[in-house]
Nucleic acid binder design. Sequence first.
DNA 1: ATAAAAGTTTAGACCGGTCTAAAAAATATT
DNA 2: AATATTTTTTAGACCGGTCTAAACTTTTAT
Lengths: 218, 218
Amino acid sequence: MLTFTEENYLKAIYRLSDGGSKAVLTNEIAEIMSTKAASVTDMVKKLSVKNLIGYEKYYGVTITREGMAEALMVIRKHRLWETFLVEKLNFSWDEVHDVAEQLEHIQSGLLIEKLDEFLGFPTSDPHGHPIPDRNGKIQEVRQHPLSESPLNKKRFVRSVTDGSPSFLQYLSKIGIYIGAGIVILEKVEFDGSVEILIDGKKKVFISRDAAQNLLVTD
Amino acid sequence: MLTFTEENYLKAIYRLSDGGSKAVLTNEIAEIMSTKAASVTDMVKKLSVKNLIGYEKYYGVTITREGMAEALMVIRKHRLWETFLVEKLNFSWDEVHDVAEQLEHIQSGLLIEKLDEFLGFPTSDPHGHPIPDRNGKIQEVRQHPLSESPLNKKRFVRSVTDGSPSFLQYLSKIGIYIGAGIVILEKVEFDGSVEILIDGKKKVFISRDAAQNLLVTD
DNA sequence: ATAAAAGTTTAGACCGGTCTAAAAAATATT
DNA sequence: AATATTTTTTAGACCGGTCTAAACTTTTAT
């Protein structure tokens, strides 16, 4: 049984390692956990004793199969709860993150299976992120940033890279949501911004940053 | 903002003080919290600094208005979550307690208000216990132990004093649930057991203990 | 009324998680 | 290759919550 904190470290390491494919540096972890490098070193030692990560001094951290399984379960819980909050309790997609950060640590296998069923076994959360199944399997969909799409081809918004409330609120305001159909009408060479058509109705300009943060599929 | 632990102490003190009406001893708290008297003394000092309880050495603890408000909010959350688990996720009433013990500490006013609405503003939980409203008001219903009811008068099961899984499972097995109609057919002088008729259909004998733990209304 | 028993508090320690300051290793610069 | 800079680790401390053992009150028994 992992502590709240251990789960959060594992989640962070999983994210930073691109799903287990590369080593992670102490300072990177400290950064996204808003803590100090010294604290990370301490925790990393504990996690490696438990075989959840591999740790080599001055080199970095790699996540083990076990650690990955744990991280995926936390992510599964987080995304199921976000789905619940949005679909059943009518939260808006920018309000759910902090609450889900707490709910993801509730310890009960039964609870999460029942919740999954109650939600109809969803495969992605309100931000378009895939929900791992009970075995930790993620249904991968190849997504690319909108900024890399060609002109005049219809794409569908699948997820956002940066899920900060302000970005999400901005998206809602201009009419972009998960599933929206988008066509790039023009790319502005000067600043990388693009003019897009949303659902065949609304034309707006969005910045290069915004276009890079929107992930789409064909 | 209270910690997980502080909330649990307040809840225990609230319970032991009969809703704030009497002083509570250190050892009583230690007992129901499964901790040691020394630990209780420590925590009790902290809570009294925060004005959540009054504390007098060697005498005991009294809960303040503020402390009571906090305790009632935790109880509100606990009971709303229990209701959610049973009504929406199909938990049985003996499975919900441990999970609700965790969920009751999630910090989000918005969440609990939305949950309340989602559940249709229930006034009692699956064990028949009243759910405090957002202001901490409890809708009191005068309940008495089934053991004190007269013969041949129909009573309705409202709640259970002891909500242990084994007792709840026993009740389910013999067909007793919150809301069930019960008539006492006979009281056995010898051991205090009673013969009852459940919903006009099923006759069973239950022990004095069981009859004392079932609270009913007219 | 005095001693014994029971209940409560203090003192000091430990654990998980965090921090700062200083030491050590790795990397970059010249 | 030697030095400066950055990154990482260690050492030692603190906080919240817990514990044991010892000291102190209060209550009970004689």
